[in-house]
Design a protein around this nucleic acid. Sequence first.
DNA 1: CGCCTGGTTGACTAATGTCAAATTGGGTGG
DNA 2: CCACCCAATTTGACATTAGTCAACCAGGCG
Lengths: 237, 237
Amino acid sequence: MSHSGSSRLDSDAGCLLCAVRSLSICGALDERELREFARLSQRIRLSSRTPLFSEGDHADAAYNVSEGTIRLSKLLPDGRRQVIGFSLPGDFIGVASGDCYGFSADAIGPVMVCRLMKQPFARFVESNPGILLRMNDFAQRELMLAQDHMVSLGRRSAEERVAAFLVGWRNRLQAIGRAAKTVYLPMSRQDIADYLGLTVETVSRTLTKLERDGVIVIVPGGVRLMDARRAEALAAA
Amino acid sequence: MSHSGSSRLDSDAGCLLCAVRSLSICGALDERELREFARLSQRIRLSSRTPLFSEGDHADAAYNVSEGTIRLSKLLPDGRRQVIGFSLPGDFIGVASGDCYGFSADAIGPVMVCRLMKQPFARFVESNPGILLRMNDFAQRELMLAQDHMVSLGRRSAEERVAAFLVGWRNRLQAIGRAAKTVYLPMSRQDIADYLGLTVETVSRTLTKLERDGVIVIVPGGVRLMDARRAEALAAA
DNA sequence: CGCCTGGTTGACTAATGTCAAATTGGGTGG
DNA sequence: CCACCCAATTTGACATTAGTCAACCAGGCG
């Protein structure tokens, strides 16, 4: 685990002002609890391409994403990579069952997270069991995303996967209040390919085809969904 | 949702004698809590090929599996199916985020489950928050299984998927004390195919190839792992 | 200005899916 | 007890999709 490229900024009352509080597990806390929470969380800024933690690292902390996108991935011994998800502001990552992380987490572009050290956080949870309900909700939501992802990986064609990814990503951005006409895609084509179980070439070809068909327009940094209805139909939702 | 093929047998002190208690979320409960728990759970027997609930049903209950195997699956509108998992004794299913189930659950062979109605269970959890920790553990474990599954679906070849499935299934059976020289496979080839994102034909061919190569022997009801080491290597663990 | 990285395109290949037929095995009724 | 029937599984021939390898292109930065 390396934290080069990261800087730590404590802020005792920061949680009270946190812009993504209502989206995160902290949304369940009252003012008193928030102050206590603030004391055990550290805001950390990560620069682009910085690892937050790596598969197999000793899991000593969990993280709340407050800004930016984090790529979660697993590697096979021969180097094949599967991106298992992307974390957005409000998401909670790193609660490993077992004492090592089961996947790697890397910043895509600049990122802000709140780090929660395992022991103090566990004590906090013990004395504020209400937050467990919220953590359960988050785990369930993550599980549902994983299940949808499995359907894509197992049963959809390349074109359907790409369409489903674009629609799903748009929906997630929408859900955290980042709706926009053009769907911002901070991750590389390779990341999309590794997420969808395809090759870069296939992703590129498929995006080109969707553009030729008038479903999207490829713009720098993302795509514009021209025919969201058709994209949803292609996704075989 | 249909419960034809199911019969309900209440049993007030049943939980105290439950053979899989230590494997299930109930493992965290003391005797007093267990008695209370027993009052809000109903033992239900399902015969083979009976649905426990279906994708989209109103989610009014969660279930503890005590005996048998349950297939969890999702359908695309055109009928393509993805099996997202199999539940074994000790597993806890049906905590939907949202008020509808996100997948279908069907008995494979005869099954025993404990049904927990949503409202009473929620009240129980409220007054016994300790069980939330255990539920979190279970959710994390399920998430890890899902993540491994995504790696198989996205990045492994047909042969690797089948090998990884056999090894993983054996390990799960082992973990619940059902270790055996021959790995029992209660699900059909079609179920395995839908789990692995392959076709029945490919699964069949691949099993035949593994047998030709001396890795397994196909026996009625399962396979015998002749060369577990090689199977694990093939799985590209 | 030109390199370097990420992205796109093209030609060809390999893996898996499709369709069809043959085989096995378990269960049922005679 | 045996014969038959049906469903599940296996096998074969062929089609299709996505992968591979290689070349090309574009934009950002030294």
